[in-house]
Simulated scan of single mutants.
Amino acid sequence: MEKKLMRIGISLPGELLDKFDEALMKRGYSSRSEGIRDAIRTYNQHYEWMQQIKGTRAATISMVYDCSKKGITSALAEIQHEYLDLITSSVHFHMEENFCFEVIILEGDGEKIVELAEKILSLKGVKHSRLTTMPGERTE
């Protein structure tokens, strides 16, 4: 079966592309295309993993966001208020002038946790977000 290659164009900030190129060189990629294909495969695998999260879960969502972006703080608060039934605690601190680090600790329905994580990840100004989950059943 012949694989058809598709050509795409993307716009990136120069600093992001420089960091990507540096990582590609250190990891031994032969081209940007090879690195981008690998990054897309990893993204797709992560998305598929998130779709399999079901049942009662304990979880954390960690994020770094640009608190100087207009509306990001209020958007995060609004989203979190929609999911108060899941959130057990959160920790927030300022990393540097414009960047905040926050960890949200959750327990509840896995599908709702994923829904919350995806809403946070899609916000403009969120630079990094990571969901970690474990089965929520307690064993003694």
Rank of each mutant, 00 (worst) to 15 (best):
M134K: 01
K70I: 03
Q52G: 13
D85S: 15
S122W: 03
K127S: 11
I120M: 06
G110Y: 00
T56L: 15
G28N: 15
K54H: 14
Y83G: 07
L121H: 10
G125D: 03
H46K: 09
G110S: 00
D18W: 00
L86E: 07
E15C: 05
E48T: 13
G55S: 12
F101E: 03
H81N: 14
R7S: 04
D38C: 05
V114E: 12
I61S: 06
K3I: 04
T60Q: 05
M63W: 04
G9K: 00
M134G: 00
I10V: 14
E82T: 10
I53F: 06
G35I: 08
M25G: 09
E22M: 08
H92K: 05
L106R: 07
K112S: 10
I53Y: 12
D85W: 02
G136Q: 11
S68K: 02
I79S: 00
R130F: 00
E82S: 08
F101C: 05
T60K: 10
G108F: 08
F99C: 07
E2N: 12
D38R: 07
L5N: 02
G35C: 10
M63V: 04
Y43D: 09
I8M: 04
T60C: 05
K54R: 06
A58K: 13
K112Q: 12
I104W: 10
K112W: 01
P13D: 07
K3W: 00
L84H: 05
V126M: 01
I120V: 15
K54I: 05
M6L: 13
D109Q: 14
G71A: 06
S62Q: 08
E111N: 13
V91S: 14
I61A: 04
R27I: 01
K69C: 05
G55C: 14
A39K: 03
S74C: 06
S90P: 08
E15D: 15
K70A: 01
M50T: 07
S89R: 04
A77Q: 07
M63Q: 11
K69P: 04
G110P: 02
E115N: 10
A75I: 03
T133N: 00
I113C: 06
S33H: 07
L17E: 12
L16M: 14
Q45P: 00
L106E: 07
V114Y: 13
M6K: 09
L106F: 03
I113T: 03
D85L: 02
V103F: 03
S62G: 13
L16C: 02
K112N: 11
L86V: 03
C67V: 00
L16S: 12
I36F: 15
M6N: 12
R130H: 01
R57Y: 07
E2I: 05
S89E: 09
R7N: 04
T42W: 04
E140L: 12
T73Q: 10
F20Y: 09
